[in-house]
Write a protein that binds this DNA or RNA. Structure first.
Lengths: 256, 256
DNA sequence: AGTTGACCTTTACGCTGCGTAAAGGTGTAT
DNA sequence: ATACACCTTTACGCAGCGTAAAGGTCAACT
């Protein structure tokens, strides 16, 4: 099989510009050029491109990818380790940045700094935790025997790292939700993103996700005043808004 | 007070190019231009620049900074929250990348990398791990922002080969130290060799070595009982002995 | 044969935040 | 007068393409 730029591009899910660029920098040259000057790629090039895209997804620079795939004796694992080193340093920098930004925001808003536990507790308080478990019981009856037990086990079993992640997810969710609420459209991009974040957040507590259960919980946010109070604490109507967004997200809006 | 570009640049610790660029994009224009076309900055501009650099350190785009500082009614906290959102997303992406890279490395090396637990269990136990991190925090304060982050990154990044090396170094250190302790003289050849080995061992964990930090750690070996307990586990007094040897080795003994 | 319309080509600017010349004017001390 | 430190503007380069612009090619339809 032979392919023109566009055919290969479609096959691999990249743009034709990308392929021309790869040709330009000598990363992936076509098998041959036809009489009209068209780039013609063969099967080998398809394989090469797969490789290239694989490494690209790992975030390697094209120059590094070139070194890896053109020199057969090149130590790819070593290159990856060096790459990982860079990524880790980047993340460390990001962490420091986020810390600073957090502190600045808190300072600007006149709040004091909190430690992890306070953050966690401040977000979702004990009451909400109880509610979550309580709702879990209903899931258990509806969606399987030990879903709740697993959920609890999952919670108890959270490492500090996971703990941090879930707290972070919650922050993201709250922010996105607030912005989405301001925008006003539960089917809008922001609101759907909030629903997505809510799903991700849920998966920390629920062992298995289902659209039905997700939509069910959304309904409870409006039906149960304790949930409502929590989500409405800054902006009244947020719980309802979140429910609508989730119903749209799960596609369960038409049935209830 | 009035300043030329270079004077202001030196004052603020940026390049003159940066100031000209900020002028170019309208982020910070000089108070006036003198008859020769020189940029002249006044006290207001100094204050502005401080603000700009503050936000720049938080990683905001110059365009956003411009919005914040030029529009007095602008909600800086809101901008920061949106910025944080971006940072959090970036970090989530980075985490995913790192995961992928880790998996790829493992696969390529056929299980020759180890996870953190495996790395640590071999030689330093959990307690020492905590201590290392704890001391790391103090380094961070004393010797630079991200020394610790880099240190952790370095550790995560160790290949099996490097891991073996550090384990071997530790064995050598322990043996040499035991012999030196038996000999009794911290300035003696064996003790100094132990100090040297200790230094080499440290460089696996610290991104940059300095005599000051080395001597500081040595002091902590005596000051902090958890360190002491670790080094004294076979022969009481070993921690103290190692400290003395290191102080002599680093030439920092006279100051403490 | 002519004309679409979908494809192909090369050239080149734009994005971010400056670093780094290059080519030339200014200010001041010697 | 000369040297030297300072100032100016203009402009390329960096990574990895997106996005025109200006123009050939190929198959199909009128």
């Amino acid at each position: 099989m032979e392919y023109t730029v566009q055919q290969l591009a479609r096959l691999a899910g990249v743009s034709t510009r990308t392929l021309r660029y790869y040709d330009e920098i000598g990363l992936l040259e076509p098998a041959r050029i036809n009489s009209s000057g068209y780039r013609i790629y063969g099967v080998n090039e398809v394989d090469m491109l797969q490789q290239i895209l694989f490494y690209r997804e790992l975030g390697l620079a094209l120059e590094d990818i070139k070194a890896i795939i053109t020199a057969p004796s090149f130590d790819a694992a070593q290159a990856l380790r060096e790459h990982r080193q860079k990524l880790l340093e980047k993340r460390a920098q990001l962490d420091a940045l986020i810390e600073n930004v957090n502190n600045t925001i808190e300072q600007k808003e006149g709040r004091s700094t909190m430690n992890d536990k306070e953050k966690f507790n401040g977000f979702k308080n004990k009451m909400m935790e109880e509610n979550e478990k309580k709702y879990g019981k209903e899931i258990r009856e509806k969606y399987g025997e030990d879903a709740v037990n697993k959920s609890n086990a999952k919670l108890m079993n959270m490492s500090e790292e996971e703990y941090r992640k879930v707290a972070e997810l919650e922050m993201q969710l709250n922010e996105t939700l607030a912005q989405a609420f301001a925008a006003g459209d539960p089917s809008g991009e922001l609101a759907q993103k909030a629903a997505e974040l809510h799903k991700q957040w849920l998966t920390f507590y629920w062992d298995q996700y289902s659209k039905e259960a997700h939509a069910g919980l959304a309904e409870m946010y409006v039906a149960d005043e304790r949930f409502t109070a929590y989500y409405d604490k800054d902006q009244p109507g947020t719980a309802k808004f979140l429910r609508d967004a989730i119903l749209i997200y799960t596609g369960m809006g038409q049935r209830g």
